[in-house]
Amino acid sequence: MNKILKIVNLKKNFGAITASNDINFCLETGEIHALIGPNGAGKSTLIKQIMGEIKQDSGEIILNGINISNFKTEDRIHLGFARSFQITDVILDFTIFQNVLLAKIGKEKTFYNFYSSLDSIEFSFEEIKSILIKIDLWDKKETAASLLSHGERRQLEIGIALALDPKLILLDEPMAGLSLDKIEKMKVIFNQIKNDVPILLIEHNMDVVFSIADRISVLVNGKIIASGSSSEIKSNLDVRKAYLGTA
């Protein structure tokens, strides 16, 4: 197992409040690593530090052996962070295919090419096809994004993230607002993607977390109190106490 993302002794205080208290954490190849914790535990502060939107007080963030602790958000994205936002943000007037193609064009830096036809550029078709198959939208590739359901837009978001050829994907509550069968579908998609790109999953739906996460880290009061497989976490007394309020 290769450690893609490593967080070492991360600390962040807002005045008297400790948002991140000496966090150690890693994301490995091929895994879905879920980060859970009650509201106010410091999840979003941690994510913002990982993305470089706020700066840690001390500690290190390491991506593939490179210390990126002081990198700007754009540079982190450039190095391979992909993030799917809670608010879906696809180009509604484009088809699914075009949305993914645009991301590919951005990734391959071919956006100054104004002489080649879109149909003929080498990288596009096969790669985009495999992405669309992964996110289960290949059949609808010519459909305008505006006509998609909420869940399908989520899928497309993930497709766009994949087209950027990321080192890791950060999914921020991807299941919010989805119906049960959509959730099942998403689970299948995530299980497929994780073999190419490890996923850091922030999710409130515990059924989802326990069924697809390979590892789970529990954040309480800015501190990771437990880390392990679903069964380990389920049986961990500290977690039950902090998270469920019962021992």
Binding site: D89, I91, L92, D93, F94, Q98, L101, L102, I105, G106, T110, F111, Y112, N113, F114, Y115, S116, S117, L118, D119, I121
Partner: peptide, 15 residues
């Protein structure tokens, strides 16, 4: 219009 540049240009109008 049908080039990668054209697609990027069309994308700028929306988002």
């Amino acid at each position: 219009v049908n080039s990668p540049f054209g697609l990027a240009l069309r994308a700028t109008r929306f988002n």
